[in-house]
């Protein structure tokens, strides 16, 4: 019962998280920041605007992106197979990339190009995290991982590699070249308008929920450690965002792949010898 409620209200929880993060980021830059419910005020405004449909494939792919990522969050809450969840998430990213390529706008194409390159950088690390959980817990099922003890100490190097993936998924500096709004005016999102942009916006909130739920898996059945990890990483991600500039795509690929693969391989090889 409580799981059904959580699944139904997942976008709203994501919206509150997003609104709180904007306020936190503004306070770090010594500004006042928008009100806490700003994402919902934006939602009301967007529904009133006129929606341009460029071509039907573009709009359908955008809506499918939103629905797929909601299903991903639902599967994590219900405790399904972790590897299946990661591949379903890959499918939702492929939907938005195809939507970016299906229009003639040059900014959309460059944004999709960059999303594809970023995906090459972080997918291996996510799969290695899943393999690490399998080696510690004996199964890929999320419900089993949540009932066992915490594996943070033995998967520590994979945890560090996962922190880099969080920066890419949440589109924060230094790794936010996929949505570089000063250069390519938003990338893939630039051709959506009206209520269809609202779907992409809500998909962004659900990304937050997805990433932080995966993070709390590292805590196992220790609820206090889970909440502590959540708040600690939330603060750390925003502090790094306010202390670095945005680096170019080729540097992103080199840094994330090299460091992520080395850390991941060390951890997995170390686990198989213990």
């Amino acid at each position: 019962m409580i799981e059904t409620l959580l699944i139904l209200f997942a976008p709203l929880i994501g919206g509150l998280m997003y609104g709180f993060e904007r306020k936190l980021r503004a306070r770090m830059q010594s500004r006042q920041g928008p009100p806490l419910l700003q994402p919902f005020y934006d939602m009301w405004k967007l529904i009133d605007k006129q929606a341009f449909i460029v071509n039907p494939y573009h709009t359908i792919l955008g809506v499918m992106h939103f629905i797929t990522i909601w299903i991903v969050v639902a599967f994590i809450i219900l405790g399904q197979n972790l590897l299946y969840v990661i591949f379903l998430h890959l499918l939702s990213t492929i939907f938005i990339i195809l939507a970016g390529f299906s229009v003639k706008s040059i900014y959309s194409h460059i944004g999709s190009n960059r999303e594809l390159q970023a995906m090459i950088a972080y997918e291996p690390i996510l799969i290695m995290v899943a393999v690490g959980f399998f080696m510690m817990n004996g199964s890929f099922a999320i419900s089993t991982i949540r009932e066992n003890d915490t594996s943070l100490a033995s998967l520590f190097l994979l945890f560090l590699a996962f922190l880099m993936v969080i920066q890419i998924k949440l589109k924060k500096s230094p790794f936010d070249a996929t949505e570089a709004h000063q250069e390519i005016v938003g990338g893939v999102e630039v051709e959506f308008s009206g209520v269809f942009f609202e779907f992409i916006y809500m998909a962004k909130w659900l990304e937050y929920v997805f990433v932080y739920l995966l993070l709390m898996l590292f805590a196992g059945n220790n609820i206090f450690l889970g909440i502590g990890l959540f708040f600690g990483v939330f603060l750390l991600v925003n502090l790094v965002d306010n202390a670095t500039a945005r680096i170019k795509m080729k540097h992103l690929l080199r840094i994330v792949l090299v460091i992520g693969l080395i850390l991941g391989m060390w951890n997995l090889i170390g686990l198989s010898y213990v």
Partner: peptide, 16 residues
Amino acid sequence: TCENAGFEAMFMRIMG
């Protein structure tokens, strides 16, 4: 120049 390089925190700091 800092804002166009993606570093919004420095932009806000210098303007303040």
